[in-house]
């Protein structure tokens, strides 16, 4: 359960970063870390399998390009289906996060 939760979260975060434009795996990880205020550490060992999973699902498309440091890099781009999934999952996630925060922030025991 925990593992699936993490998979799903990482996938949405990747979709979100790609909504600004195509990026390679290295840049995606970096973006997520920066945007989370360096609270999240994206392990490469989870990042790449997640990228390949969503590529297989057709949420992203990949093509080879040349990076800023003049190296051949695999760039991921959001597909129409990916954009749709991002909207759908982002809503689910904020509802979920909000609910968890409410439970953890509760001051009173619920009436039984």
């Amino acid at each position: 359960m925990e593992k699936e939760l993490l998979h799903g979260t990482l996938e949405v975060l990747i979709l979100k970063t790609l909504s600004w434009g195509p990026m390679h795996g290295f840049g995606i990880g970096r973006w997520i870390e920066q945007l989370s205020g360096n609270e999240l550490r994206i392990e490469e060992g989870s990042l790449y399998p997640a990228l390949y999973r969503i590529e297989k699902k057709g949420w992203v498309d990949a093509s080879w390009g040349v990076s800023d440091n003049q190296r051949r890099a695999k760039y991921y781009r959001l597909t129409t289906e990916g954009r749709r999934q991002l909207h759908k999952n982002a809503d689910t996630w904020s509802t979920f996060a909000h609910a968890v925060a409410r439970v953890l922030g509760a001051k009173q025991q619920p009436a039984s």
Binding site: H24, G25, F26, Y48, S67, N69, R71, R72, A73, K74
Partner: peptide, 9 residues
């Protein structure tokens, strides 16, 4: 190739 790019960068 993709992993090599990541590690080199």
């Amino acid at each position: 190739d993709e992993f090599a790019f990541h590690v080199e960068t």
